[in-house]
């Protein structure tokens, strides 16, 4: 698949996932009092939500970088599924949908690990003397 299309889909997936991810993370900071250190539990929970949500984005990035076409396809499907789940959670705040979103995020983390282990990084080109 064309590299440009792959990177465009990467950017779209990143935006579509991070908008609800950051909003949900900010909801967890709702009860945090002003002046709380950024290294507190509240901020750690918010950061964890954002990091976990970006698992599929990381998988997408690696698949594109390592020219792994099948991995790109799987990661794109996973990203879209996660984006849809996050949007529904944001709109409905339904616990069942939240559970499904959690399962999707776990699957995406597994996919990320799969892509990392099944592909190698691009070899570094050394200049010949």
């Amino acid at each position: 698949m064309n590299k440009t299309i792959q990177w465009v889909s990467f950017v779209l997936a990143a935006v579509a996932i991070n908008i609800p991810a950051f909003l949900l993370a900010s909801f967890t900071l709702f009860g945090t009092s002003e002046g709380t250190s950024i290294f507190s539990i509240d901020y750690a929970v918010a950061a964890l939500i954002v990091i976990l949500a970006n698992g599929s984005i990381a998988a997408l990035f690696l698949a594109i970088n390592r020219n792994y076409a099948r991995g790109f396809f799987y990661a794109l499907v996973a990203s879209v599924a996660e984006a849809i789940c996050l949007y529904i959670v944001l709109v409905t705040f339904n616990m069942n949908v939240l559970l499904i979103t959690g399962i999707v995020i776990v699957i995406n983390i597994v996919l990320l690990i799969y892509i990392i282990t099944s592909t190698k990084a691009k070899p570094v080109m050394h200049k010949q003397s």
Partner: peptide, 11 residues
Amino acid sequence: ILTLVVLIKLQ
């Protein structure tokens, strides 16, 4: 990709 565009628009 269209699904992603729609989701971004809705948000």
